[in-house]
């Protein structure tokens, strides 16, 4: 079943938006994503360009400056709201996980079967 666009964010989408809280240009975003994730998320320059175009088209980010060939982008209120929703969704998932695998009072790694 195809996932509705931006209903949930992929890792490259999430980190790209996260990096645009302050204005940044392409190379800076790639660098920040790599630093934030310790190199776990690889964001190719072609993919980043297409992502930025897509985000701009739906108003999640805006072009804040263009210096020569370099374009700078930043998050819009709509983009910020989407990022907050995604964060809330991820927190819900984490909370559910904790509820199932780490009941209150038990140490991490102990599962339900070990409860008295």
């Amino acid at each position: 079943m195809p996932r509705e666009k931006f209903q949930t964010l992929t890792e490259p989408m999430f980190y790209t938006l996260l990096c645009l809280r302050a204005p940044a240009y392409g190379a800076e975003i790639m660098e920040q994503v790599s630093r934030l994730t310790g190199g776990a998320v690889r964001l190719g320059p072609g993919t980043l360009y297409h992502l930025l175009e897509e985000f701009c088209a739906v108003g999640l980010i805006t072009e804040s400056d263009a210096l020569g060939r370099r374009r700078t982008y930043r998050l819009t209120p709509k983009g910020e709201a989407l990022l907050q929703n995604e964060y809330a969704r991820l927190c819900r998932l984490a909370e559910d996980y904790r509820r199932v695998f780490q009941p209150r009072g038990s140490a991490p790694g102990q599962d339900k079967e070990e409860e008295p």
Partner: peptide, 16 residues
């Protein structure tokens, strides 16, 4: 073309 130039700038930064 500004679009192509913007793409070139991002790619150059990654060594392409």
């Amino acid at each position: 073309d500004p679009e192509a130039q913007a793409l070139d700038a991002v790619c150059t930064a990654a060594g392409w």
